[in-house]
Design a binder for these strands. Sequence first.
DNA 1: GCCGATTGAGATAACGTTATCCCGATACCG
DNA 2: CGGTATCGGGATAACGTTATCTCAATCGGC
Lengths: 340, 340
Amino acid sequence: MQEKPRARKGRRPTMVDVAREAGVALRTVSRVVNDDATVGAELVERVRSAIAALDYRPDERARHLRLGVTGTLGAAVRQLSHVNPVLRAVERAARAAGLMVLAASTEDDEKIERHVVESMCRRRFDGILLEPIGADHGYLVPELAAGLSLVAVDRPVLGLEVDCVLSDNVAGIETAFAHLVAHGHRRIAYIGDDERIYTAQERATAFRACLRAQGGAADAMIHTGPIQRERIHRALESALSGPSPATAVITGNATLSVETVRWFRDHADDVAIVGFDDSELATLLRPDLTVVAQDDAAIGDTAITMLRTRIAEPATPVRKVTVPVTLRARGSGETTPKRP
Amino acid sequence: MQEKPRARKGRRPTMVDVAREAGVALRTVSRVVNDDATVGAELVERVRSAIAALDYRPDERARHLRLGVTGTLGAAVRQLSHVNPVLRAVERAARAAGLMVLAASTEDDEKIERHVVESMCRRRFDGILLEPIGADHGYLVPELAAGLSLVAVDRPVLGLEVDCVLSDNVAGIETAFAHLVAHGHRRIAYIGDDERIYTAQERATAFRACLRAQGGAADAMIHTGPIQRERIHRALESALSGPSPATAVITGNATLSVETVRWFRDHADDVAIVGFDDSELATLLRPDLTVVAQDDAAIGDTAITMLRTRIAEPATPVRKVTVPVTLRARGSGETTPKRP
DNA sequence: GCCGATTGAGATAACGTTATCCCGATACCG
DNA sequence: CGGTATCGGGATAACGTTATCTCAATCGGC
């Protein structure tokens, strides 16, 4: 079978080649490719035949340059390799809007975050969703001044006026605390993340407020720090020993829940637990894990809506949207105090 | 504070603007930006001052068009929202090579897969990693003919001569089977995925071969189908009942392991299990889950290496790399038969 | 039959970079 | 001192699309 004609060896056919093959002007080919109704039927047919003959396929790099719009949103997330249900909602909402989301991970590293975000800026993506890390986002200042459309997800970009969508951390902790109190618990411990992280600080601060409202001493029941198994296990040992051991634990995220449950199975079997955020394993344990669940779909949808608004109307005032969370009682948070 | 001068309202400054500001030619600005050593120090300084004054930032869309290289690799994966440790290795290997990986998910949907891959082709990404779904990849034929560099990960693109890197499914199943036999098990069941999926078929076929080698009837002990909790639980009920119930189970992937363990906790407590692929929860259960672990880092590194080779030397013969797996004995696969 | 409006199509510039080619000045060698 | 080579910098084209503007032909109305 005869090889299809190529415009030039090693180079893919362009509209110029299609125009030559069809015997029309370049502009005519562009009109046909873009379904411009002002081209006569005969020319349309000739162009389509040439497109098929040359196996022409559009090059959006040129189109992006000419139009100044790429139809692409970047998503700079902390970990692509981990579970990230918000991304599903983000991709679906973008696809519904005819946009493509391209994700890269920042690996919880500030240098990589800057590298990833600046790479996306250099590619002139139409907008960026960022799951921010760390405190210093100075590198964003000139990009925002130059017109970057960005929405922070899950935590704000501290120090900068940027759109943000996140869960209601405070209400989540309050709900968890009230739930345990309603089941008779009076000595409740908190196992949280490093408070330099925004959500960790919000959740820890909310927990302290709960303790103070209860009339209790605040800090002895709160254990925050990096997510390391040993640190978490030491915290649990401390919280659940001594003259007034905790009878219930609230954890600050799914990984902390995992490590807490791991410790429980060897060291404690009658401690109630309510964990922040849901995950697959929450229904694998005995009893099932009671959780404060974030509304990933709402976060994702809202993030895309806010980003599209920012792109379309850059003068829109900066917004911070807080998405409600939900307590899912599955058993582990409904037991009553059993320790002395 | 005086606003920084803008080349034109609403448009970002370009090299043309920098050239005007610095009083040099456009080409000179390009030379400076690209660290061309042939520009005199005085002109370099003037250009850099103009860059700072205008807050110029390079636009890689134009560069990509002119050079025909984007420095970007697309990763079309089944689910971004789920755990995907291979992606971590992919991103790290790409970063080390000065490339950016941008990922999108195909959501296990053939139409979405085609849409995502064709979008990446239209953007002329330098290469694509694909976690293929389904059987029909005809849409790739013209792209491959036109020079698309693509590596399939985790399963081959059936019917097309395309580079592929995947785990040694056969050896994994054989190892798991031999492990259970070594611990005295003679009636071993297999809970697998839908055999239309390549890896599922490979694993199921390997399991059948193990059964035949053992001299047993093949199909009664094999249960494959879609990953649905009810189907899996019915399969387990069937496998573990009757006159010759299985005393051990091998599962075909991490999700099947999850569902099998979920059923076990309510219905069976003395059945050995070896699961294909590792996950976080494997060490949360009692006993810990014995697994056949895939080498995610090796898969990711190999995928990037193969893709870069394909990009750099398109005439390279197509390769299929099989990455060894490892059995991790953690307890659940080491018990001896206990059922009658 | 003529004039004005509309339509279908084409010529060329634009987007913002980099490559190619060229020019003028300077330095070195014979 | 003259000729040739090299170097620093500039002019312009190229990449592949779409936008803008223009032109010619046709049609309808007076």
